[in-house]
């Protein structure tokens, strides 16, 4: 079941892209966001049951061997963590329907949330340190954008601290890929 490993990354990425494209209509965006979150939860549940039944799963994207290609690995821990993040993502999407005031900034919320979920799931499923670094960066850039959504002084002030600390941490993790 190799495609099950790719699903938790592709589904939120697709939801983010379709959500960005459909930001003109709020109803479309909400429907896409909900469908993406439910799809991610289903894929995560499928992955967890597959790993539980058949043991550790791994896939080489495009059949390229390990040092050159991208490896995805799901052991019991990472499958469980993907399931937990998918569940939290679904709960956050449903909560955001009731909590956000409509406006141009709320249109960016759902696509960015799905980009964040794609980064988190990719980081859990990455099979080597460098891909972990790349997925961590995707998660980081989405979380930075979510943090400053709205642009109030308090948000920007907090984002300065968060960005400073996390960018030092990414440079350190970049060095660790050697």
């Amino acid at each position: 079941m190799n495609w099950l490993l790719v699903c938790p990354i592709v589904i939120p990425l697709a939801a983010a892209v379709i959500g960005f494209a459909g930001r003109g209509s709020e109803r479309t965006q909400k429907a896409v966001s909900l469908a993406g979150a439910i799809g991610l939860s289903g894929a995560a549940a499928g992955l967890l049951s597959s790993v539980w039944r058949d043991g550790i799963a791994s896939v080489q994207i495009g059949q390229w061997p390990a040092p050159y290609g991208i490896t995805l690995v799901a052991d019991h821990l990472s499958a469980a963590m993907v399931a937990v993040s998918a569940l939290i993502g679904l709960a956050t999407v449903i909560y955001a329907f009731g909590d956000t005031r409509p406006g141009p900034l709320s249109r960016a919320l759902h696509p960015l949330l799905h980009a964040l979920l794609a980064g988190v799931c990719g980081a859990f499923l990455a099979g080597d340190v460098f891909n972990l670094y790349v997925w961590f960066e995707i998660m980081l850039i989405a979380s930075l954008a979510l943090l400053v959504l709205g642009g109030t002084p308090a948000q920007l002030d907090g984002a300065v601290r968060y960005a400073a600390l996390s960018l030092i941490a990414t440079a350190a993790s970049d060095c660790c890929t050697v």
Binding site: L144, G151, L156
Partner: peptide
Amino acid sequence: LAFRTYQEL
């Protein structure tokens, strides 16, 4: 982020 922070703060 630095530019927007300078504008706001």
